[in-house]
């Protein structure tokens, strides 16, 4: 007899494993944002000159702007495949809570885009002459910040997935909402590089992450329902 309520933990675990397995089988989706990051980081010294002092000064801002763009790029395709192959319909019909399911999707997305970006950021930071002392703060700000970007980006992805030209639109919708993350995260790295205490900014990022974890799944769920209905 299996006429009991479906096991929630097993479902969320299975969803997470499934998303990670899919990412593993299509590594290009994970690698592309990283290559994009590397490519754009290369552009900056070419555009503004190789002077190490100048690069070091701009490094926090550059790193975070590029991380933001890479995250935006990754967010766009987040639900696209699931929408087109009908998995999204099945997800909405499942008796499991959509709030937690969309949180799981976002977590998987962060694990395959945000985490690699975070882990590789010290490499890019070194290329941009960011002081070594600021690297731990960079890592922490990247880990917190990319998680917020994934959550906010999922909202945009959920709202635009049924639209044919969602790509440009998602930038317009999401970039304004990314701004506080850019300001506080780049500010934290800048503070660390200049020898100030970045704790307040990092705490603010942590607070924003808590808020996003609590609220974003509502918007993502609503967006997915609208998109599946409109399609």
């Amino acid at each position: 007899m299996s006429n009991q309520p479906p096991a929630l933990g097993a479902f969320l675990g299975a969803s997470l494993r499934r998303q990670l397995l899919l990412a593993y089988r299509r590594p290009v989706d994970t690698i592309n944002p990283l290559l994009f990051f590397l490519l754009v980081v290369t552009l900056f010294p070419l555009g503004i000159g190789p002077d190490p002092a100048q690069l070091a000064e701009f490094a926090p801002g550059i790193l975070w702007i590029v991380a933001l763009l890479a995250s935006l790029m990754a967010a766009e395709g987040m639900f696209r495949q699931d929408y087109e192959d009908g998995s999204l319909e099945q997800l909405l019909l499942s008796p499991q809570p959509l709030y937690l399911a969309s949180l799981t999707y976002t977590a998987a997305h962060w694990l395959v885009t945000g985490v690699p970006l975070t882990l590789l950021s010290p490499l890019f930071a070194t290329m941009l002459q960011l002081p070594v002392a600021a690297l731990p703060v960079l890592l922490l700000s990247m880990a917190l910040g990319t998680a917020i970007l994934s959550l906010v980006g999922s909202i945009g992805a959920a709202l635009t997935v049924s639209l044919k030209r969602g790509g440009m639109l998602i930038s317009l919708i999401i970039v304004p909402l990314y701004i506080p993350v850019l300001i506080f995260a780049a500010g934290a790295v800048r503070f660390a590089a200049e020898g100030f205490d970045p704790a307040p900014q990092l705490l603010l990022l942590a607070g924003m992450l808590s808020l996003a974890v609590a609220l974003a799944p509502f918007a993502i769920s609503a967006g997915l329902r609208i998109s599946v209905d409109a399609g």
Binding site: P6, R25, R26, D85, S87, E89, Q90
Partner: peptide
């Protein structure tokens, strides 16, 4: 149970993996 035009099948998963997730989501 709704089966629509879109199969709800992941191309990058095997039939067994696809159904395993369906089992989890439906209980």
């Amino acid at each position: 149970l709704y089966l629509g035009h879109r199969a709800g099948i992941k191309q990058l998963l095997t039939p067994r993996e696809n159904l395993a997730w369906a089992c989890r989501s439906q209980g």
